[in-house]
Amino acid sequence: MSVLQSVGATIKQLRAQVAALHAELPRNALVVWTAGNVSARVPGADLLVIKPSGVSYDDIRPENMVVTDLDANLVDGDLSPSSDTSAHAYVYKHLPQVGGVVHTHSTYATAWAARGEPIPCVLTMIADEFGGEIPVGPFALIGDDSIGRGIVATLRAHRSPAVLMRNHGVFTIGPNARAAVKAAVMCEDVARTVHIARQLGAPLPIRQSDVDALYDRYQNAYGQA
Rank of each mutant, 00 (worst) to 15 (best):
96 P>Q: 07
133 E>Q: 09
171 F>A: 12
124 T>K: 13
68 T>A: 01
118 P>M: 04
216 D>V: 00
100 G>K: 10
71 D>F: 03
140 A>M: 13
37 N>V: 05
183 A>L: 05
24 E>L: 15
149 R>A: 07
132 G>M: 11
48 L>V: 09
134 I>T: 02
104 T>S: 10
180 A>W: 01
215 Y>W: 11
104 T>L: 09
209 S>E: 15
210 D>F: 01
128 D>Y: 14
91 V>Q: 08
183 A>Q: 09
25 L>F: 12
2 S>Q: 11
12 K>Y: 00
35 A>I: 09
166 R>H: 10
152 V>A: 10
98 V>C: 03
215 Y>T: 05
9 A>N: 11
56 S>Y: 00
124 T>V: 12
137 G>V: 06
95 L>G: 06
9 A>T: 12
208 Q>G: 02
41 R>V: 10
60 I>F: 06
10 T>N: 13
168 H>D: 04
94 H>D: 05
86 S>R: 04
123 L>G: 06
199 Q>F: 09
209 S>T: 12
38 V>M: 08
202 A>W: 05
191 A>V: 04
178 R>P: 05
139 F>A: 12
130 F>M: 14
83 S>G: 05
175 P>Y: 04
105 H>W: 10
175 P>C: 12
188 E>R: 00
66 V>M: 08
184 A>W: 10
74 L>F: 09
64 N>W: 00
39 S>V: 02
27 R>L: 14
136 V>Y: 06
207 R>Y: 02
20 A>K: 07
119 I>C: 08
163 V>I: 09
86 S>G: 12
59 D>H: 11
158 H>V: 06
66 V>F: 07
175 P>M: 07
92 Y>P: 06
7 V>H: 01
146 S>Y: 05
63 E>A: 08
24 E>C: 00
14 L>C: 10
122 V>E: 08
29 A>T: 07
93 K>H: 08
153 A>S: 14
224 Q>H: 13
199 Q>D: 11
175 P>D: 08
3 V>E: 15
13 Q>F: 00
212 D>M: 04
213 A>N: 11
87 A>E: 04
